[in-house]
Design a protein around this nucleic acid. Structure first.
Lengths: 248, 248
DNA sequence: ATACCGATTATGTATATACATATTGAAACG
DNA sequence: CGTTTCAATATGTATATACATAATCGGTAT
């Protein structure tokens, strides 16, 4: 995998059939038109739909399978996978799983919730060009009795209107969003900082203690969805990322 | 891409020809037997070598090309690429490039160099099972006059013997290694910490100021190559990683 | 020498075909 | 009624073939 990479499929005309099938299906999945679990047309159906041979369709589907977008089952067909290839990335930040892996009880608690018209700062964080409604959330993830991470989140309500109806009192917005919004791209920023007063207070650590900050922006089909900032006390947290340059 | 993933090719017997060709060639490249620039056999040669059709060979080579291990040129053949697809990952930590991107002059300065038999701690960091010679290096990366990052590195001399002859007085070991050792896997650990005395002194910051620590372990064909720890002052550095869930 | 042009060559893409393999669903059987 | 068997089905892998495309090499003409 590579951390910085551009999509090599352009929407042009002179693309190969192979590429066209690939991007068509990928678009359907990422847009949500084909939800997880949905059965993709059989190879022979796509064969007639695209008026091409089975080999061509097969190559495209095999590639999608290798990329983890779909799962192929003999005799049954091909199915859109749960967004879990993505979870492999996101599990870094599915805090419930991290906490439970430590054998500690997990709990989420909302600290604040505010629906507002996006400020200039909100738009900068989300990458929005024009003003619109956003939902600002602050919450605390607990491992047992101890605060484990502080979460500060913005949700673009123009992209995810239903989020405006949610209270997020005890369910964390992260899992809620993952279940509803298929994402196509995410950007992480990782840095260290000294805890400010608000943070130190929430996490119950000393002021100016070192913290690890992970910020993530997520897009779905070009539209900004959410910006989230996780703040971890330094002692409690190490990110681990394992890379293989290429996967056969 | 996924952050945590296992190689799906086992060394077993009942693998498809496709997989066998793939892993054969990949092994040749990663082991260094075929250096960057080396022309790999033409499709029709592999066809006779593996006694299979051109399509099968072509599929395997196309996949290697997409993975970035080789480059294919019409009429000329297929060539092992410089390890640069990997640079897309590593550029996160090619500090020279980061510094020069800021428009500042870059300089590396060695602080210490020690050849020794690996201690238990060395082996833990490198992931080595048995004792052997290692090279321990400490150095400082400068952006202009200011220290930019402190580097603490171990090199497994059993894997990279030539490194023992290098002084690394003004050239950083990172680029030196990348040019010589093709790597097959890397693991990053990222965390925040308060500067200890040695670090604060080297980086010219306050003791207990927050720092971002990036540790990387690298393997080449199952053999540990190097362990490196970069320590950045919090103000100077943010890691950015951009993910796309799958690449067509 | 230099510029142009065409033949050659290796890869790029697609087809039709064949058989293997895993899984399902239903029929046959105890 | 439960179990076994078998045929149908969708995918997995491989082949032989065909033509397209890009790059290179040589020869020819300027």
């Amino acid at each position: 995998m590579s951390l910085v990479e551009t999509d090599d499929v352009e929407g042009g005309e002179n693309v190969s059939l192979h590429q066209r099938i690939l991007s068509d299906i990928r678009e359907k999945i990422l847009s949500g038109a084909w939800a997880p679990g949905h059965r993709i047309p059989f190879e022979h159906e796509l064969t007639t739909q695209y008026n091409c041979s089975r080999m061509t369709v097969n190559k495209a589907l095999s590639q999608l399978a290798k990329a983890g977008l779909i799962e192929r089952r003999r005799r049954s067909g091909s199915f859109v996978r749960q967004p879990q290839s993505q979870a492999a990335v996101l599990e870094l930040h599915d805090i419930r799983i991290e906490v439970e892996a430590l054998g500690l009880p997990y709990r989420y608690e909302r600290l604040g919730r505010l629906k507002r018209r996006s400020s200039a700062e909100d738009r900068a964080l989300l990458g929005l060009a024009t003003p619109g409604p956003v939902l600002a959330l602050e919450g605390l993830h607990f491992a047992g009795e101890r605060p484990f991470a502080l979460e500060q989140r913005l949700i673009n309500l123009s992209a995810v209107a239903e989020a405006g109806e949610e209270e997020f009192l005890e369910i964390a917005p992260g899992p809620w969003l993952i279940g509803r919004v298929p994402w196509s791209e995410a950007e992480h920023r990782i840095r260290a900082m000294a805890a400010d007063e608000n943070t130190a207070d929430a996490l119950d650590i000393d002021a100016s203690a070192p913290c690890l900050v992970v910020e993530r922006r997520t897009w779905s089909a070009e539209h900004p969805v959410t910006h989230v900032r996780f703040i971890y006390p330094a002692e409690s947290h190490t990110l681990v990322a394992r890379f293989t340059p290429s996967q056969g």
